[in-house]
Computed example of a mutant assay.
Amino acid sequence: MTSVGVVTPFWLDRPPGEALDIAVAADETGFGALWIGEMATFDAFALATAAGLRTSRIPLRIGPLAAGVRSPVALALGLSTVAETTGRSCSLALGASSPRIVTQWHGQPWEPVRRMRQTVRDTRAILNGERVAGFRLRHPLAGTPISVAAFGPAMTRVAVQEGDEVVLNLVSAAHVADVRRRAGELPLAVWVPAALDPGPDTLRQLRSQLAVYLAPPGYGEMFTALGHGSLVDQARAGRPRAELAADIPTGLVEAVGAIGSADDVARRVGEYFAAGADHVGLVPATAEDPAGRRLLGTLAPLLPTRHR
């Protein structure tokens, strides 16, 4: 069964509190999940608690959070806090993140594959009520799904072996199809930037996000395969992000997003499902559509949005 959820984005050109407005809009329009990640604004568990208290029914999917930053005990305590204080269905997603975030921001070693594998195993055991390293969670959340964000083959293998779902972000439908072949029957979720009839400010917002992903391994190769290798080379050579963003063509935004009329966006979501996705998380652009209300309200009747 396919479903569509909503991702709380952290646009640098928008007020931080808009994340809560997006949560309310997603809940009111009946979307099947609210994804709450983490960057440089809020602690994800704190934001999820606030979102749960502001909404009435939407399930909360916390993450992907960097597996190398919090211990399994901290992850289990955070998830338990959200579940107990909001009374809401919660799940957890973990990702490798990046060396900058893990080592520079948080002072932890960069061992993505080993750390992911052990973190998923230990966190799952704690959530199921087992004692790990002398710790036992007072209120277990047995059976809580743990998703793994993956891009390259190594992390995809970890996701298949240890996770309950593979999560992809900012990818083409062709990349989804490739991961679908490698993931077998494991559920597959993909985050897709979305905008209804985008104007210049919205396209600028989306291009700025894309510019961040031009250089990293895996993403750069995907964008090169899409015909934009020159931009990737420039990003890896150190060209400023603002300059790169200005040169990103609309076609590249369309290749990894869902933009245009309501029918265009719905059709694009359908292409991700056809490529093998089980769940699409819409990342609403909000530069010209505060909290994505127009996007979400228009699309809800056209998509499989209801809770599973």
Rank of each mutant, 00 (worst) to 15 (best):
T224D: 14
A225L: 12
L226K: 10
G227D: 05
G227F: 07
G227S: 08
H228W: 05
G229E: 14
L231C: 04
L231G: 01
V232W: 05
V232L: 08
V232Q: 01
D233C: 05
D233A: 15
Q234S: 13
Q234D: 15
R236D: 07
R236E: 10
R236N: 07
R236F: 10
A237Q: 14
R239Q: 14
P240S: 09
P240Y: 11
P240I: 09
R241S: 15
E243G: 08
L244R: 08
L244D: 09
I248K: 06
I248H: 04
I248W: 05
T250P: 10
G251V: 13
L252D: 04
E254P: 00
E254N: 11
E254I: 07
V256E: 03
G257W: 00
A258I: 08
G260L: 06
G260D: 05
S261Y: 12
A262I: 02
D263Y: 03
D264C: 03
V265D: 06
R267Q: 12
R268K: 15
R268Q: 14
V269W: 04
V269A: 08
G270T: 11
G270W: 12
E271I: 02
Y272I: 03
A274T: 14
A275K: 04
G276N: 14
A277R: 01
A277T: 11
D278M: 13
D278Q: 11
V280L: 03
V280I: 07
V280D: 01
G281Y: 13
V283H: 01
V283K: 00
P284N: 08
P284A: 05
A287C: 06
D289I: 05
D289A: 06
D289P: 05
P290W: 09
